[in-house]
Design a binder for these strands. Structure first.
Lengths: 109, 109
DNA sequence: AATATTAATCGTAATATTGCAATATATATG
DNA sequence: CATATATATTGCAATATTACGATTAATATT
């Protein structure tokens, strides 16, 4: 075990879980916030900005990339990261649906 | 290692990460959707509904409870679960802020 | 070409997560 | 009280995650 039983759930549930998991880490939240806050793309000031080692940051960026939430373009020696607008908007909508489906308290608890 | 360096990040980032992590599993997404879809509170039809063993469901419910996202009230032999409205709304707002902070594509990537 | 700079990859240790069988707990009901 | 029902807890095996040192890869600069 130690293995999520993905075959039991719908593709939508699995995909949402994967993308939420990508965001569900303080370092990756911080990375996303930093990328968003910078008006331009971020060319890897992240190592200095956060207090984590370079391989660790690189790994977190890879996970965000794998989840499709950011994209990186090579700019000479460095790499520029920014939000992937389509996936970002899609995830926003998906999460919004989940939360909005809960209307008012049933006050039975 | 294997341990998130929480001291590096803000309380907000850590709390958001914890609550997102609670949702970031297909079983827990399915549980939340089922609780929401039922107009009344759910008294453990979950084991039959999802294809997971009873201890596994119980554990997932515990995690959602620990994250403050659901609450359970004892109803005789069984337990009724429903969304915790305050935490649910707060998390919705927090996530909404994160996503909304990204305006338009900077098209520099 | 040699060196510097930046980021990715590999390998590894520590810890966390997932899932379940077995068991425990707690409340009904006969 | 004995038994049934519903849920929680414990213990464990398999796997995943987190973090980083060491190394590699790739492009600039001298």
């Amino acid at each position: 075990m130690g293995l999520t039983k993905t075959e039991i759930f719908t593709d939508e549930q699995n995909k949402l879980a994967i993308q939420l998991k990508a965001i569900a880490h303080p370092a990756r939240i911080a990375i996303l916030q930093y990328i968003i806050a910078a008006k331009a793309c971020i060319c890897g000031d992240l190592v200095e900005e956060l207090g984590l080692a370079q391989p660790t940051i690189s790994q977190h960026l890879k996970e965000l990339k794998n989840a499709g939430l950011i994209q990186g373009t090579i700019e000479g020696v460095s790499v520029c990261y920014c939000i992937e607008p389509t996936a970002w908007a899609a995830l926003q909508k998906e999460i919004s649906n989940l939360f909005a489906s809960y209307k008012d308290p049933n006050n039975c608890c």
